[in-house]
Computed example of a mutant assay.
Amino acid sequence: MSVSPERQAVEIEGHRLALTHLDRVLFPASGHTKAQVLQYYARIAPVMVAHTADRPASFVRAPEGPGGQSWVAKNPPGGKPRWVRVVPVEHREGVTEQVVIDTTAALVAMANLGAYEVHVPQWTATAGPDGHDRLVLDLDPGPGADLVVCCRVAQRLRQLLDDDGLTAHAVVSGSKGLHLYAPVHAASGRAAGGYAKELAARMMGEHPGLVVVSMARVERRGKVLIDWSQNASAKTTAAPYTVRLREGAPGVAAPVTWDEVAACRDPDELAFTPEQVLDRAETYGDLLAPLTGDATRARLP
């Protein structure tokens, strides 16, 4: 996909899209425009869509970038093309329709509407909320801690998961922390969340001065929060490869190798621009490919 300033009509996978406001600068610190973000999504889609396909998506919408108004949206954005797939999802407040990002065209169409940040649950629409197929642990550094500390915590969590027969894969969140994923056989949100909570408690028992499981900020200074709650069926996590809406240059939720995790001594070492993530995908392929297959899935203990 090639775009020119302000507006252009393009065809993606047989669907015509009118891309607008292409010269809008979304990230003033780095100069990234909307056109560059759309180009990133069009090029990363072959690896990203495998991790969003069949999962009801929610979005952080910020049409003018992170410096403007932003909000979380579960309902499809106004102007959604009719060919973009939606699925019904039951929430406490009722049933809503949510977009499924299962094609390059759908991903670009949503970004074109200002839905730049994609979040998905750990279950698919086909399996339903009782069919979680991956476990996630969100490592979030409190004041005085950083990504380097998260990497140390992640290494030990990897060992604990391995002891339980689960294989962990690391993703820098594109913000401050780190996500750990493990493919699992179909499990309920209650079972996945219960195991993740118990694992986080084990880690805190080993390293009470380093790890916390409470959301209370007063308890998080100098420590890493292991957020196990994102395994609940109602919760979502920033999708692998999504752009993150943060001040400064755009962050990306980017897969990293365990060698990179072990070697990290500075948070900037694992902070990647969209262009760098595209280069990494070309070099490494999809480091998260095991999450999308069946051969590596393990049962929760």
Rank of each mutant, 00 (worst) to 15 (best):
S2T: 11
S4M: 14
E6S: 15
R7F: 00
H15C: 12
R16S: 14
T20A: 10
L26K: 06
S30A: 13
G31F: 10
A35M: 15
Q36E: 15
V37Q: 11
Y41H: 05
R43F: 01
A50F: 02
A50S: 15
A53L: 02
P56R: 02
R61M: 13
P66G: 04
K80G: 00
W83H: 12
V84G: 07
R85T: 15
V86W: 00
V87I: 13
H91G: 12
T96D: 07
E97W: 13
Q98S: 05
I101Q: 02
D102S: 06
T104K: 04
L107R: 01
A111V: 13
L113A: 11
E117L: 06
Q122I: 03
A127L: 14
A127N: 09
P129C: 09
L135D: 12
D138H: 03
L139P: 01
D140P: 00
P141M: 00
P143V: 06
G144V: 07
A145K: 03
V148S: 02
C150H: 03
V153K: 03
Q159E: 14
D162N: 09
G165V: 09
T167G: 04
A170K: 10
A170P: 15
A170H: 06
L180V: 08
H185G: 10
S188D: 10
S188R: 13
G189Y: 09
A191P: 09
A196F: 07
K197A: 15
K197V: 05
E198W: 15
L199S: 15
M203K: 06
E206N: 10
A216H: 14
E219Y: 13
E219K: 14
R220G: 05
R221C: 07
R221N: 14
V224W: 05
I226L: 07
D227W: 02
D227M: 00
W228G: 00
Q230N: 10
N231S: 03
A238V: 09
T242P: 00
A249C: 03
G251W: 01
V252N: 01
A254D: 03
T257M: 01
D259M: 01
A263E: 09
R265L: 10
D266V: 01
D268N: 09
E269Y: 02
T273I: 05
P274H: 04
P274W: 09
Q276C: 09
R280H: 05
T283R: 14
Y284C: 08
G285K: 05
D286G: 12
L288F: 04
L291P: 01
L291H: 02
D294T: 14
R297V: 03
A298Q: 12
R299L: 09
P301D: 10
P301K: 10
